[in-house]
Design a protein around this nucleic acid. Structure first.
Length: 426
RNA sequence: AGAGAGAUGGCUGAGUGGUUGAAAGCGGCGGUCUUGAAAACCGUUGUGGCCUUACGGUCACCGGGGGUUCGAAUCCCUCUCUCUCUGCCA
C-alpha cells in the first residue's frame, strides 16, 4: 500500500503518477478528506486521554492519602465515555481509509514508459535465434502426445482442465529443469527455500494479493487458507513483521513451488496445453534491499532470470511494461518472453518487478539505521520479485525449439547432466 | 481431535488493579582505564501515531480482538499460536 503521509504531503505527485497508469485519482481526494477527519479525532481523543491519565494519577494519590476522590472519579467517567465514542468513530475512519488504500496500486517509477495498454510496452532486447525447420514444427501438445510425456486429458480427468500430467521423460525433464534453475540461482547468490504452498489470509494481505485478487485464488474455506499463485507470497512473508540488519542486505531467496491460479474467465484457444494452466511450477526470486539500491537490484534480477534462457539456448526477448500494464504492486517491471515455434508468438515466462516499499509497508519488513546525529530509525525495505523461471511456458518453448524431423526432442546441453539422457524418443 | 501449560522489550526472565514503558541478567552501543585488546566500572539501549523547523511534548502498544474500571501487562470473555501428554495419519 501507499503511505498515507505521501498522499498527504505530495498529493499532486501521487495523482499524476496514478493517472499515468490510467488509474482514477479521485480516490485520493476522498482519502484526504477522510484523513483530515481522522487526524481531528486523534487530536481530540489524545488530549482527553492525557487528561484522564493525569487525573487518574491524582486519584491514586488521593486514595493513598485516604482523601475523597468521588468528584474526580465521576468526572473521569464522563471523559472515558467520551473517549470511547471518539475511538469508535476513529476506528470507522481507520477502516475506511485502509480499505481504500488497499485498492490503490503502486506508483510507476519516473523511468517507466508512458502508455495506455500493453501495445505500448517497449521491447528492450532480443537474444538468440529463431530455429529454421525444414518441416512443419509440431506444437508442444502434439509432441507431448507423440512422445507420451505430457497427458493433458488424464490431467483433466484427475483435477479438471488446466492441471497437467507429466509422464516418463516429461516428468524427468521437468525435474531436471527444477534442479538446473535452482542450482543456477544459488550460484547467483539466492538462498534456496522450500516454503508452504498454503498460506493464511494475513500472508496474502501482506503480499497485497487480497483484497484485489482474492477471487483469482484457490481458497480452502474450512481453514481459511489460500493456495499460493506464486512463491512470491510465501517467500515475502518469511520476514513479515521483522527488522532486518542492514549488514545482511541485500537478502536474496530462490524457491521452487507449485503455483495455483483459478484463471476464472479464461477460455478458448489460450487455454490449450500449457499456455494457461491452473497449476504450474516456478522458481521464484525475491530480493529485499535498501531503497536506494532497488533499481540496481532489478537489473541484477533480470540478468539472473534471463541467464537461464541463455544457457538453455532459447530465443527470447525482454520487454519493459508501460505504465498502464504494470502489475498492482510494481513500480517498474520487465517481462521475459520465449518464442513458441509452433504458435509463432511470444510466451511470457517471467516477470521481474521492483515493488519498492509497497508490499513491505503492509508486511512491516524494515531495517534499522543510524541518522547523522546517531539516532536509530527504521525504514521499509524494498522488495523485488521475479520468476527464474516458470516451467510450463518454458517447457513449451523447449520442446518446440528442440524437436527433430522425427518428432523427437533433443535436450539442451546445459540440461543433460540433469536429465541423464540426450534425447526423448517415442 | 481430546486434556493440560503457556505467550512480557534483541534474548532470558520478574511483575496479579494506581509514577511499570515495564525489575534483573545477557546481548548491543558510547565512555573511563589500556600501547592495543580483554576484564572491571559508568552511562545508554523498543515500536508506531499525532504536534513541532528543531529541542521536545503527547498518545498508543506486555500474542490478536472485545469487556469490567476513574485507572489494566495485571481481572473477565473470545480468537490465534506455541509446548507437553493421549488419539489419528503421511
Amino acid at each position: 500500500m501507499l503511505d498515507i503521509k505521501l498522499i498527504r504531503d505530495e498529493t499532486g505527485f501521487v495523482k499524476e503518477r496514478l493517472k499515468s497508469r490510467n488509474e482514477d485519482d479521485s480516490v485520493i481526494d476522498e482519502l484526504l478528506s477522510l484523513d483530515k477527519i481522522r487526524l481531528d479525532l486523534i487530536h481530540k481523543s489524545d488530549s482527553l486521554k492525557e487528561k484522564r491519565n493525569t487525573v487518574s494519577d491524582e486519584i491514586a494519590v488521593m486514595k493513598r492519602n485516604k482523601q475523597n476522590a468521588e468528584d474526580k472519579i465521576a468526572e473521569m467517567k464522563k471523559v472515558s465515555d467520551e473517549i470511547k465514542s471518539l475511538d469508535d468513530e476513529l476506528k470507522k475512519y481507520d477502516e475506511e481509509i485502509d480499505l481504500k488504500l488497499r485498492y490503490i496500486p503502486n506508483l510507476p517509477d519516473k523511468s517507466v514508459p508512458l502508455g495506455n495498454s500493453e501495445k505500448d510496452n517497449v521491447e528492450v532486447g532480443i537474444k538468440g535465434e529463431i530455429k529454421k525447420f525444414d518441416f512443419k514444427p509440431k506444437d508442444h501438445i502434439e509432441l507431448g502426445k507423440f512422445l507420451d510425456i505430457l497427458d493433458f486429458e488424464r490431467g483433466a480427468k484427475i483435477s479438471g482442465s488446466g492441471f497437467p500430467l507429466y509422464k516418463g521423460k516429461g516428468a524427468q525433464l521437468e525435474r531436471a529443469l527444477w534442479n538446473f534453475m535452482l542450482d543456477e540461482q544459488q550460484k547467483n547468490g539466492y538462498r534456496e527455500v522450500l516454503t508452504p504452498v498454503l498460506v493464511t489470509r494475513t500472508s496474502m494481505e501482506a503480499a497485497e494479493k487480497i483484497p484485489k485478487f482474492e477471487d483469482d485464488m484457490y481458497h480452502i474455506s474450512k481453514d481459511d487458507l489460500f493456495a499460493i499463485p506464486t512463491a512470491e507470497v510465501s517467500i515475502l512473508n518469511i520476514h513479515r513483521d521483522e527488522i532486518l540488519k542492514q549488514e545482511d542486505l541485500p537478502v536474496k531467496y530462490c524457491g521452487l513451488t507449485n503455483c495455483f491460479r483459478r484463471e476464472a474467465g479464461s477460455y478458448g484457444k489460450e487455454t490449450k496445453g500449457f499456455l494457461r494452466v491452473h497449476q504450474f511450477n516456478k522458481v521464484e526470486l525475491i530480493t529485499f534491499c535498501l531503497p536506494e539500491n532497488s533499481y540496481h537490484e532489478l537489473g541484477n534480477m533480470l540478468k539472473d532470470a534471463t541467464g537461464i534462457l541463455q544457457k538453455l539456448d532459447l530465443y527470447y526477448r525482454v520487454i519493459e511494461l508501460c505504465t498502464a500494464d504494470l502489475g498492482f504492486a510494481a513500480s517498474k517491471c520487465f517481462d521475459i518472453e520465449v518464442w513458441s515455434h509452433a504458435e509463432n508468438k511470444w510466451l511470457e515466462t517471467s516477470s521481474v518487478s521492483n515493488c519498492t516499499d509497497f508490499q513491505t509497508r503492509r508486511a512491516m519488513i524494515r531495517y534499522k539505521y543510524l541518522t547523522e546525529n546517531k539516532k536509530s530509525r527504521t525504514e521499509y525495505l524494498h522488495a523485488l520479485n521475479g520468476s527464474g523461471l516458470a516451467t510450463s511456458r518454458l517447457m513449451v518453448a523447449l520442446l518446440e525449439a528442440n524437436q527433430t524431423k522425427e518428432g523427437f526432442v533433443e535436450i539442451p546441453r546445459a540440461l543433460r547432466s540433469y536429465t541423464g539422457f540426450d534425447i526423448i524418443r517415442n
